[in-house]
Design a protein around this nucleic acid. Structure first.
Lengths: 348, 348
DNA sequence: CTGAAAGCGCTTACAG
DNA sequence: CTGAAAGCGCTTACAG
């Protein structure tokens, strides 16, 4: 774990392995005319020194790696933002998806893909909805790779740069909107309590209800995951309550769509019989029927900001704040309307 | 447009420009101690020869470029498929989005991004929903870059490798499904007549109707673009017909969602009052309310096949067929149901 | 199977 | 401002 020795050259590799440069070169290139023992020895040294060959032509385009916890309409917007910014900044973006990257961390060793990364000559890396262990962070630092996290699962840490959005304010705005529409029986269907963005939204909701002096009824807060299926079962649970809500605030658009479908399956119409507000404002919200009223996270802008920040970090600049939050805004479409007299009265 | 001269070396550049290698090197690296005239001359020669420097170390991971005509849930599925396959094949994928790349072609010069591409040492390129001019193709060939197109806009050409899906069979299956449900007044809302995939779907629809001995009523075929907004206005046009359809087959999922929303805006329920079938089976279909019955294109598999093919091409292998089509399948969900007695009777 | 030697493509310190 | 010369990091044909 030497912090910063100069890039290893074939000559030093050869010397360390006690062979000629010619032989080392043959091993490197997988030629067949090398004895197995020699080959093994040289390969050992090669690996040990993290040999990566001659420095790449510097005038080649910089490339930054974009790591997704999985593909989704959410990820799609972020990618779009990063790509747009990359076009202007003249950098290449290599995308990879690691479905495991959002899961809890076990070991103390860096995740395999971090090792690969250090050898690949990237300028920086951007992680979306990802969680990194201390070992990962250390490996990245050792490889001198700038890192920016978008909407990190864990609460923003001092030693990682991250960009998010104002989730608390967003939760507040969603609940207030429903309140201002005259709803009183408002339920919340949220994502996992372990994700920091999710916690903030939940507290925003609670805050608004409290400020309005309204109680949160029994069973009116459901915390699951962020998927459509969770919306389906969470929505069902809410609608099957003895005293069902007249409005549901869902912690993301997929959850909201699940609620809408759960309502439809019960013969309930949205927004006539049930108002629904989502969160994110991905493509899904615009294309839903009815079009979804939702809290917009500026995902494209978040992608663009992440890339700009990563590039700045990579060129050695200090960054003002290790965490920035872009503003969320309420986008009013058609899935939430004024509470009917009936339901408003029923709530008294 | 020389077909295949060896990679230019600095020595030949210098000779052509009538300077020493040292001077050429200085120009290449942007050193200041070169006279403006000399610099200009050398730069001219550099550009003329498409100078790209020493061949990159071959043992670095291969990287292939994925070019999208734009970001969408369709593109998202394809990316996912390419990424999955890339993980196994150990190649990096750099993604770029060129919103213009699907537009009609004007000039006889290669598109700017093709020029950049040749210098970047990619192993191959995959284009999604893209159209390439002869000049583009020639530039790619000159750079010895393998190319595979996914769902090309133009009819598959002999000199480009492409992968698509059985659009005609898909169109046929969609229409037959509606027919088997007892619908008679079936309309078609399709994408642009200029896209070959779109033409095939349209003909599939016509074929099924013809085989059933049913006429296609006046105004029952609407050809627009593939966007949600087109579904909205196309759906409106269809529903406002004096004799509106009882079922609509839409040429893609976004169009179908537009139709569903157009119906909702008129107080019509899907599927009770109107059956809708889509095409593609992107995320949108699964998450729609009601969940969309649609013709599935195996977009992930298409991405995976495209990458495998591109890699094979890049390593000099011949490929059996310059165009392969993966099978489409009808996915029955909830947006299309049996025609009500009323509408079935009305159609007689 | 190994390595001395020639060579390639490039860069850089330096003399003019 | 230019280029001859030395040098770097690597590869390859070939002698042993």
């Amino acid at each position: 774990v030497t912090s910063s020795r100069p890039r290893a050259t074939l000559a030093t590799i050869a010397a360390t392995a006690g062979v000629s440069v010619a032989t080392a070169s043959k091993v490197l290139n997988g030629r067949s005319d090398v004895s197995p023992t020699t080959r093994a020895r040289v390969q050992g040294v090669l690996k040990e020194h993290d040999y990566i060959g001659r420095a790449p032509k510097s005038d080649g385009k910089a490339t930054v790696e974009l790591i997704l916890a999985g593909m989704s309409t959410y990820a799609m917007e972020v990618i779009q933002g990063v790509l747009d910014e990359a076009g202007g900044a003249d950098v290449d973006i290599v995308v990879r998806s690691h479905p495991m990257a959002g899961r809890p961390i076990r070991s103390g060793r860096p995740t395999p893909w971090i090792r690969e990364l250090s050898a690949s000559g990237r300028r920086a890396v951007i992680g979306v909805n990802i969680r990194l262990s201390g070992a990962d962070l250390a490996a990245l630092a050792r490889a001198k790779l700038a890192l920016v996290l978008i909407d990190p699962i864990d609460i923003p840490q001092l030693d990682v740069t991250s960009v998010g959005s104002t989730n608390f304010a967003g939760g507040l705005a969603a609940a207030r909107h429903l309140l201002s529409l005259g709803h009183r029986r408002i339920a919340y269907l949220g994502g996992p309590a372990t994700a920091s963005c999710s916690q903030a939204r939940t507290q925003g909701f609670r805050g608004a209800m409290e400020a309005a002096g309204l109680p949160i009824l029994d069973g009116y807060v459901q915390l699951r995951d962020f998927f459509y299926e969770d919306g389906l079962v969470g929505g069902a649970a809410l609608l099957d309550l003895p005293e069902p809500p007249t409005a549901v605030f869902a912690g993301c658009d997929q959850l909201a769509l699940g609620v809408i479908e759960a309502a439809r399956a019960r013969g309930l119409r949205v927004p006539e019989d049930l108002s629904v507000v989502g969160f994110d404002d991905t493509e899904l919200a615009r294309l839903a029927s009815p079009p979804l009223t939702t809290v917009r996270q500026p995902l494209r802008e978040m992608g663009a900001v992440a890339l700009r920040t990563a590039l700045r970090l990579a060129s050695g600049e200090k960054v003002d704040s290790h965490h920035v939050e872009l503003a969320t805004t309420l986008v009013v479409r058609a899935s939430a309307v004024a509470a009917t007299r009936l339901s408003a009265v029923a709530a008294l």
